[in-house]
């Protein structure tokens, strides 16, 4: 906690420099090459079910017979209540969980197990504490056997894009929670996956930091055009980021709707009638009737 408080000053500095980067719309060399990505990075789930076995022997179906296609370049947000299959859905695509039935395809390939073609930003803190910030961002490249000069070039690019160049040589423990999240985001983008998966990556951050990181994420997505599957429990976050939102509940896809709001999605856009209507629908799926605060107590959370 103390560490976080100490570095929050630094964090804010870097945030303003970050904002400057984005507004200047600077495109860097590495990103131009990343722009020419593989033409087909569609993610397709084909009748996928995942069944777990509890320790007492009960079978639990986390997701059941899900068909879903995420088109190349889409930013799909997955929302739903906790424990109803969001994370499992993401883990199946990541290859961390094998489907009990059905298959998962990326492009034309059926996938089994994890692979560097699908990068994950985890819910927990997966930044390696024993690697300096730059080494953390370059980890995936090192795994691939990319040579040091090339690695350093890419790492520098992404550290600058997320506004962390000044702490490249720091240990993660010297960073605030928000800065560590940026390291995680930069690490995944630096590895240049075809598909990017994010599991409530900013859930543990305070409101201001979360808003800033959403900005960083949007910026990187717009520059690289990656396919992104973004799991969140926050309806506002989904409205801000998504090109399309699905609602998962009880192991099924309950709703699937495009979000055609204009960008940048400022307060005005998010207050438009279309946004209000979408928000109302989404909240009702989560068991929250808008305008009825007392209803919160009646949900079985």
């Amino acid at each position: 906690m103390k560490t976080a408080r100490i570095s929050s000053q630094k964090s804010e500095d870097s945030d303003s420099s970050q904002a400057a980067n984005i507004s200047a719309g600077r495109t860097t060399g590495a990103l131009q090459s990343l722009g020419d990505r593989a033409p087909n990075a569609d993610v397709r789930l084909d009748a996928v079910s995942v069944t777990f076995m509890r320790s007492n022997g009960d079978r639990v179906t986390a997701i059941e017979n899900v068909d879903l296609t995420v088109k190349t370049g889409e930013l799909l947000c997955v929302i739903g209540r906790s424990g109803e299959g969001k994370t499992t859905l993401l883990n199946v695509v990541a290859g961390l969980v094998e489907p009990s039935e059905g298959r998962v395809l990326v492009g034309e390939r059926e996938i089994h197990g994890t692979g560097a073609d699908r990068g994950v930003i985890f819910q927990g803190d997966a930044v390696y504490p024993w690697m300096r910030v730059a080494d953390n961002v370059g980890f995936g490249l090192r795994v691939k056997g990319v040579r040091r000069p090339e690695r350093e070039r890419v790492v520098d690019e992404y550290l600058e894009l997320v506004g962390l160049s000044h702490v490249a040589k720091s240990w993660p423990r010297e960073l605030s929670g928000g800065m560590r999240s940026r390291v995680a985001v930069a690490s995944v983008f630096a590895n240049d996956p075809e598909v990017l998966l994010a599991d409530e990556p900013f859930g543990a951050l305070d409101y201001v930091t979360r808003r800033r990181l959403q900005g960083v994420m949007l910026d990187l997505w717009q520059r690289t055009g990656k396919t992104i599957l973004f799991v969140t429990h926050d309806v506002e976050e989904a409205l801000l980021l998504a090109t399309r939102i699905i609602v998962v509940g009880g192991g099924h896809v309950l709703d699937d709707r495009p979000v055609n709001l204009a960008r940048p999605r400022d307060e005005e856009v998010l207050a438009s009638s279309e946004a209000v209507e979408t928000r109302r629908r989404l909240l009702s799926y989560l068991g929250l009737e808008p305008g009825a605060g007392s209803a919160v107590g009646q949900t079985n959370e």
């Binding site: 961390l96 994890t114 699908r118 997966a126 390696y128 690697m131 795994v143 690490s187």
Partner: peptide, 26 residues
Amino acid sequence: PAVQLARARTEGATRRQIYRWVILPS
């Protein structure tokens, strides 16, 4: 932490690389 191992796997690390760069330093 399982999440640290999972990250290495999703970044394409082999078993050997995971031992060398994640488990050992950890």
